[in-house]
Design a protein around this nucleic acid. Structure first.
Length: 428
RNA sequence: UCCCCGAUAGCUCAACGGCAGAGCGGCUGGCUGUUAACCAGUAGGUUCGAGGUUCGAAUCCUCGUCGGGGAGCCA
């Protein structure tokens, strides 16, 4: 058995391909069957003269998504160079498919989402999720080669990490527990044991978000590195994003073509990325008519204004302390701001990275926990990290689906998750 | 939680106060190179639910249900 992705190596040979019927067209004595096997899509040509009457009728009667195999000779498509097709000699069904709901014409989002388990078979969903897989591999390859160790964080936690967003509460054998919104605090403990670490897994936000940029459950990679300062933290971020985009352009040419993605913007994604301070970003927004004042956080329209000024991802650094999490380190040169940065992707995708140097001074951290009204006793273990050999360190979080959505050019982040969890939508 | 928009054939939509329609999908037939193929025929309806206005409601009004987009929150 040969896969569709390998057909180019078998031109002139007879091969067997197993898969599902994506689409078919017939023309009297010819039937064109587009088969998909998970690795790609391929046209099979069944000519009446080459098949028994039973076999030819079988080919013509196949319905959408019937599973079957063909045996035939691999040929280059006479009209399209580099595209291969199969001259069918034998064809056999595995299983029928009656009234497949997703026909080759337009469908509404609600209908497609309620058929997500079948929608995954569509070409664009296939392409998007293959890009997602490539991105995850790029992230692991990059971090592993940079000496980071994969140390995963728990999904179930006794309290909120940041105390800001709403969390899902669980009954943990009679006591409350929460689904984690971030592995960050655990990463800091791991960084003190392993130096450079990252966790990669799902996180959960119980916010009733209803936008094209938000998921209730999403995957995040969170690198954390000991003795890395703010400046170097940003360099790691931009090199990681550069690598992800470069790998996708190199290895996902077919997928990007299926998605009709204009890759010009992606070609520009090379380091160094532009950097501006929060204060500069506020000025830009004000010049464009935004009502934002220094000290407030950016709204989605403000992010759009800033990102529209640049041809690649832009990093905004040094936000006011009051709009950021308690664990971010105060800027020694300006105590009003913290040593953090957000990376805003182009094309209105929004924030794909949030990162910072962490507060390593025990007294300042204690004060911040009090100021944020966080339960001190829940953070005892975290404060231990400052008691027993405190160390300068930094880290960041990159949203896998946001990155996928951007590179694939998705209209909505839900397409970047195989089975997205959305507000009032967790089936299938 | 707030603000907009929507619900009509399996799907995508039209009809906007006067006979319920089209394309796609299904089915039947035709065609040796099709690319969401094409051509002909055919089946398919409690117009989301409840109430109201009207000679007459898919259409106007009220309430409800479900869905979509956006804000806030953030990856």
């Amino acid at each position: 058995m040969v896969t569709i992705s390998e057909l180019g190596k078998h031109v002139g040979e007879d091969v067997k391909i197993s898969g599902w019927l994506h689409n078919s067209r017939s023309s009297g004595k010819l039937v064109f069957l587009v088969i998909r096997d998970g690795t790609g899509f391929c046209q099979c040509v069944a000519f009446q003269g080459n098949l028994s009457p039973e076999q030819f009728k079988l080919a013509g009667d196949l319905t959408q998504e019937t599973s079957f195999f063909v045996v035939g000779t691999v040929k280059e498509n006479p009209k399209q160079k580099g595209i291969f097709e199969i001259d069918v000699k034998q064809i056999e069904k595995y299983g029928d498919s009656v009234d497949f709901p997703i026909s080759p014409k337009e469908h509404g989002v609600g209908f497609l989402m309620s058929n997500r388990h079948l929608w995954l078979r569509s070409q664009k969903q296939w392409a998007t999720l293959r890009i997602r897989a490539r991105i995850v591999k790029s992230i692991r390859d990059f971090l592993d080669s940079e000496g980071f160790i994969n140390v995963d964080a728990p999904c179930i936690t006794p309290s909120s990490c940041e105390g800001t967003t709403t969390l899902f509460e669980l009954d943990y054998f009679g006591k409350p527990a929460f689904l984690s919104q971030s592995g960050q605090l655990y990463n800091e403990a791991a960084a003190a044991a392993f130096g450079k670490v990252y966790c990669l897994g799902p996180v959960f936000r119980a916010e009733k978000s209803k936008t094209r940029r938000h998921l209730i459950e999403f995957w995040q990679v969170e690198p954390e590195a000991a003795f890395v300062l703010h400046e170097e933290n940003m360099k790691i971020q931009e090199r990681l994003v550069e690598r992800i985009v470069k790998d996708a352009l190199h290895d996902c040419e077919t997928e990007l073509k299926v998605l009709e993605r204009d890759t010009t913007v992606l070609q520009h994604v090379v380091t160094p990325f532009p950097r501006i301070t929060y204060t500069e970003a506020v000025k830009i927004c004000q010049q464009e008519g935004s009502s934002i004042e220094w000290g407030g956080d950016f709204g989605a329209p403000d992010e759009s204004i800033v990102s529209s000024k640049f041809d690649r991802p832009v990093m905004i650094e040094k936000y006011p302390a009051q709009v950021k999490a308690f664990y971010m380190k105060q800027d020694p040169e300006d105590p009003r701001v913290v040593l953090c940065d957000d990376m805003i992707a182009p094309e209105d995708v929004g924030e794909i990275i949030g990162g910072s140097q962490r507060e390593d001074n025990l007294d300042i951290l204690l004060k911040k926990i009090t100021d944020h009204n966080l339960p001190r006793e829940m953070f005892d273990w975290y404060l231990d990290l400052r008691k027993y050999g405190t160390f300068p360190h930094s880290g960041f979080g990159l949203g896998i689906e946001r990155a996928t959505s951007w590179i694939a050019g998705s209209q909505h982040i839900r397409e970047a998750s195989p089975f997205p969890r959305l507000l009032d939508h967790n089936y299938p």
